[in-house]
Amino acid sequence: MANFHDTPSTPSPPQRTPGTGERRLAALLARADIALNGSRPFDLQLHRPGAAARILAQGSLGLGEAYMDGDWDCEQLDGLIQRLLAARLQNAVHPPVLALARLRARLFNLQSRARAWVVGRAHYDLGNDFFAAMLGESMAYSCAYWADADTLDAAQNAKLELVCQKLGLRPGMRLLDIGCGWGSLLRHAAEHHGVQCVGLTISRAQAEWTQQRCQGLPVTVKLADYRSFEVAPGARFDRVASIGMFEHVGNKNYPAFFDVARRALKPDGLMLLHTIGKTRHHEATDPWIDRYIFPNGQLPTLGQITDCVDAAWVTEDVHNFGADYDRTLLAWHAQFRQHWPRFAARYGDRFRRMWRYYLLSCAGAFRARAVQLWQVVLSPTGVPGGYRRPLS
């Protein structure tokens, strides 16, 4: 029998000394209680040392692209992003790409009529079957309302009903939905409230889906940018809604957006705006989100909204339930992960990593309260006696 102590030992490979980029990245992450190659689920596991310099040089764009390329991983990606944003580490990195993004937004109208169609082709036209697998029965691609709901479908139905209640929809009314998506609000309002609906979208796939799904209902869908939509004075709408579309309007176009809505609405009507928003005016659109998910997007501040409406509208109600978006995004990710095998061959693994990063990083951002979700109810001249928000 061989003696263990006589068995030649294999020398351990020499420990690699971390480079300057890794040391700098580790020190930065430590400020958010994140360890480089640590053992906790939200710690960042670095696979390629060169990615550290890439992340430090390019900020959020480098972080997202390096993840897509498999340069790093994290078991709890949403927890990692939550900690990064809560510690405001984005302010510690100043990549040139971020300064360029701010300059472009100041100099150019990135959401012009010609550019408005880009996000439809790049994002919303990816495949109706893909979005149906992720979004569920409602096909609502906006924040759900989880106050009394336990499932995604129930929470989305609760959000749609909340919108209808806030608008006070009644049978025979006419509703305009600016940015109708896959028609979730149109269908709900027509089926449950007897409302005649018109929806606008810049996505051909969304228009086709909505027209098919709403057959037999008093629903019309128009493939049109909101700026090209004209309403005759005698055909104005009782109510106007915009759910999750305002993020594509851009601050240079806010006056035009609200002017279109105002001209479409009867003098005694109501409008509901449902939008993601940012808390700090100076923060630019995330370069990674702009490049890979929502090109030419821009989040508003609440102040920008109120500045645009104070001359021609009365702000009746403001409701923030942005924390519900965290849970919504996690539910979407769970369904995306469940159904991914159906789409793997079509989209490939880099898309899988991109979509995982998108959903979970956004969940972390809402959990950190770095971004918000507002529902704002407006009226042209003020509701007589005052507006009362329905119990929710």
Rank of each mutant, 00 (worst) to 15 (best):
72 W>A: 07
72 W>L: 11
73 D>E: 12
73 D>A: 08
74 C>W: 02
74 C>H: 07
74 C>G: 08
74 C>Y: 04
75 E>N: 08
76 Q>W: 11
76 Q>M: 05
76 Q>P: 01
76 Q>Y: 06
76 Q>I: 06
77 L>K: 01
77 L>H: 13
77 L>P: 13
78 D>A: 15
79 G>K: 06
79 G>N: 08
81 I>A: 08
81 I>L: 12
84 L>K: 07
84 L>V: 14
84 L>W: 14
85 L>Y: 11
86 A>F: 00
86 A>C: 03
87 A>C: 04
90 Q>S: 03
90 Q>C: 02
90 Q>E: 14
91 N>L: 15
92 A>V: 02
93 V>C: 08
94 H>Q: 13
95 P>C: 03
95 P>D: 10
95 P>W: 02
97 V>A: 04
99 A>C: 08
99 A>Y: 06
99 A>S: 09
99 A>H: 12
100 L>E: 09
100 L>R: 09
100 L>K: 11
100 L>Y: 05
100 L>N: 13
101 A>R: 08
101 A>P: 00
103 L>G: 12
103 L>Y: 06
104 R>V: 10
105 A>G: 05
105 A>Y: 03
106 R>I: 00
106 R>M: 13
107 L>H: 00
107 L>R: 05
107 L>M: 12
109 N>W: 01
109 N>C: 04
109 N>V: 01
110 L>E: 11
110 L>N: 13
110 L>Y: 02
111 Q>A: 15
111 Q>K: 12
113 R>H: 11
113 R>K: 13
115 R>D: 14
116 A>P: 01
116 A>M: 06
117 W>R: 14
117 W>G: 08
117 W>P: 02
117 W>D: 07
118 V>N: 14
118 V>H: 11
118 V>K: 12
118 V>T: 12
